[in-house]
Amino acid sequence: MTINPDLQGRSYPAAEVYDVGREKIREFARAVKATHPAHFDVDAAKALGHGDLVAPPTFAIIIAQRADAQLIEDPEAGIDFSRVVHADQRFTHHRPIFAGDRLVAELHVDGVRAMGGGAMITTRSEIFALGADDSREPVTTTSSSILVRGEGQ
């Protein structure tokens, strides 16, 4: 299997809207063994000055990996998901994610380089919150590299 080198520079526009729900924030927080009350109790979040429950710092991975799926599942990409290893990850929060946010992600393929029999692919998701008038507020930039292992790697 060969990774298509023409992927570099490709972008996938924002697709479906992700509605951030309180129960999803609670579920994700429990799944990463978070205990901070701002993830669970609306009054505790408000006491810190927030409008609603605050998502954990890595919550945006849900939206980022949905965006990445567009690339991984793109038959032109040539990526075997079972051979994908996560190499690095970064979240830059322009503001926190709150329950009630309506988020969209734009995916950018920033780098593709051959490594052994495989390839390292770096992607970036620009995540925006949609306003009432469909305005876009920058919320989080995520970037990650995945290593697609070649045979025997």
């Binding site: 978070a34 810190l48 710092p57 929060h93 926190p96």
Partner: peptide, 13 residues
């Protein structure tokens, strides 16, 4: 003391 205070987080695996 506030999860919103984490403005950037990165790692290599």
């Amino acid at each position: 003391g506030d999860p919103a205070a984490v403005v950037d987080f990165q790692t290599r695996f």
